[in-house]
């Protein structure tokens, strides 16, 4: 009984580390539940999440869910070339008789891979540079990093990405590399702003006076405070990267034939407009669906983080 009376004052002394961990877990679970609630309140976010999930599943299991998996490669069947949509080929066939539906599903693979891989390459680099520049604000390190960032931001990313992709061997990986080279500055600039605001907080000063290492301050004190804007930007960026990727393959600087990709399919199909409209139109609609799905999902993630702590 006596212990309970003193609870408010002796709280830290009577609670065990296991209990702390337990409390932390409970609060994390509660936060997760609350975030999910915020996310799921908007029906569009849920639609976006389900669309993305469906697209990922289709892409992963493409060989099992498509009617003609062979058509994803260098398959030729002139007897069925340029057939309009029918029950046999729901989106019709292309100029050499391949099922467009099958090729769209296989084409999803490179689009999704592009969206994910570019961010995997870009975010760590961009974030690290932003953290360092923000923490050492006002020094030559800051000047070097941020002025370099300005140079890359001086031209729309698509032009430089096209230029880099054009001097390299055209394929999916070099396309990713080209887009990544142009994408990191956006993260550097985002994190720079956040980090230079956070570095003046008391908990950072506290870590500094207790002799914490620079790495500790950057990654354990400042980084956690920049996480939600980074995630928000990432979730919105996937759609952009997929658009840029489709543009690269549209001009022939991405995935090479016979491998299917949505941008290439639109470009090839455009030559058969207006009579064989389905060759270009269905892949074009597929791009819109993919981008729409990721955009709705991204908006949901943004709302989830934006409302946090309000």
């Amino acid at each position: 009984m006596a212990e309970q009376v003193n609870l408010s004052r002796g709280f830290a002394a009577t609670i065990t580390p296991q209990q702390i961990a337990q409390l932390e877990r409970a609060s994390r679970r509660e936060n997760l539940g609350r975030s999910w609630y915020k996310f799921s309140r908007n029906i569009l976010s849920v639609v976006g999440a389900l669309t993305v999930l469906a697209l990922v599943l289709l892409a992963v299991f493409a060989p099992y869910v498509t009617p003609y998996p062979k058509h994803a490669g260098a398959f030729v069947n002139f007897a069925h070339a340029k057939e309009p949509p029918s029950s046999q080929y729901i989106f019709g066939t292309d100029q050499i008789g391949r099922d467009i539906f099958t090729r769209i599903i296989f084409g999803l693979r490179s689009s999704l891979l592009m969206g994910v891989m570019v961010l995997v390459l870009v975010v760590p680099v961009g974030v690290l540079l932003g953290l360092v520049a923000g923490y050492f604000q006002g020094t030559w390190i800051d000047a070097l990093i941020m002025r370099t960032t300005d140079i890359f931001l001086a031209v729309p990313p698509l032009i430089l990405a096209l230029a880099v992709a054009s001097v390299l061997e055209p394929n999916l990986w070099n396309g990713m590399l080209a887009v990544s080279l142009m994408w990191w500055p956006w993260y550097t600039r985002l994190v720079y702003g956040l980090a230079s605001a956070t570095r003046n907080e008391f908990f950072v000063s506290a870590a500094e006076v207790t002799g914490a290492s620079t790495a500790h301050i950057l990654f354990r004190e400042i980084l956690p405070n920049t996480i939600s804007p980074i995630f928000t930007k990432m979730s919105l960026d996937v759609a952009w990267v997929i658009i840029i990727g489709s543009m690269l393959s549209f001009v022939g600087l991405g995935v090479q034939p016979p491998e299917p990709s949505l941008g290439t399919m639109v470009a090839d199909g455009a030559r058969y407009l207006p009579d064989q409209w389905w060759i270009a139109v269905f892949p074009a609609l597929a791009i819109v669906v993919v981008v729409l799905g990721f955009n709705l999902l991204g908006d949901g993630v943004r709302d989830m983080f934006a409302a946090e702590g309000v």
């Binding site: 543009m247 549209f250 639109v266 455009a270 139109v281 791009i287 819109v288 729409l292 955009n295």
Partner: peptide
Amino acid sequence: SYAGVVTPSFVFAIFFVL
């Protein structure tokens, strides 16, 4: 606005031509 943001320009171009 939503449709405009999620549709790449070259897709618009092709639909407009068509």
